[in-house]
Write a protein that binds this DNA or RNA. Structure first.
Lengths: 153, 153
DNA sequence: CTCAAACTTGAACTTGGCTTTAAGTCAAGA
DNA sequence: TCTTGACTTAAAGCCAAGTTCAAGTTTGAG
């Protein structure tokens, strides 16, 4: 099945100009034309899904291009492609860890402002986590695990 | 305790120019000077930790500035600050979900290239997930949950 | 007093990833 | 035949978040 750039745009959520940009950057090797117009097929749409995934794992366009070039080399590049996927998997796991840490801080802050709101002041947090209520101390420990004493506003 | 820009740079991992940039952008309200030089204290260092957190939750500099302005308004802004933290918490949860989805695709791809490498070809994945080995079908389902048939290279 | 290290400023520059613009082509339908 | 909508190109523009630059100031040691 073949698609126009507009159809692929709707299928992937990427704008036509982004698709042209990706093509120009070499992310869609072997993309053909008919009457000057780009003709996409299901393989291209699948490639775009992988591109999106590599992008969210932190790969830059030029590195995605290198990967797409590898896919044109068939079985000769399996090992390199596998290595790249493993590297991105590891990076993604690290990123998830960092987001969990960010989340812990935000949960503490949500509790903190909830508490401040119901008390009318932030005095409960002077010298935090020392004189914090149990719930707050718990959240604080998760948010700032490597932190002995001191206040946190 | 007071610190120079260089000390704070080492404490936070942010470059001196980034700290000057943050100051210029209003992210450190009330930052003082002595002899023309910026003087940071522990509160500023704590603010920088929160700034980092808001940044990784997806807030832009201008919105972080708005938040820091709120913190200068004391108890009058508790409700707004709480609302903002809750919004960022929700955003962060969504981001973690997306990263898990990305991870699932990468895990499938790791398996895929491992398999391709040991077989010497990708024929096992023609019409995936149909004729995939059990392990592969499992990973495929997690990677592409809303996907009935068709191959995936 | 002199020197080096660390700081100051405003302005220009960089990077990545698109998006916009301008001018033109192509195919289908009235 | 004319119009309309979707497409084409190259080049320029945009944005966020810093970074770099050039020129000057402050501070403490020797």
């Amino acid at each position: 099945m073949d698609y126009s750039i507009g159809e692929v745009s709707k299928m992937t959520g990427l704008s036509p100009s982004t698709l042209r940009f990706y093509d120009k950057e070499g992310l869609l090797p072997g993309l053909g034309r008919q009457g000057g117009k780009r003709v996409f097929d299901d393989d291209h749409v699948r490639s775009l899904r992988v591109i999106e995934c590599l992008k969210s794992s932190g790969l830059e366009i030029r590195d995605i291009r290198k990967f797409m070039e590898l896919t044109t080399k068939g079985s000769a590049s399996y090992a390199q492609r596998k290595t790249l996927m493993e590297k991105q998997r590891a990076k993604t796991l690290e990123q998830i860890d960092e987001m969990q840490q960010t989340l812990a801080v935000l949960e503490y802050k949500c509790w903190y402002y909830d508490e401040a709101l119901s008390r009318g002041n932030e005095d409960f947090a002077t010298d935090a986590p020392a004189n914090l209520p149990a719930r707050g101390r718990e959240l604080y420990k998760r948010a700032f695990p490597r932190d002995g004493e001191e206040g946190a506003r």
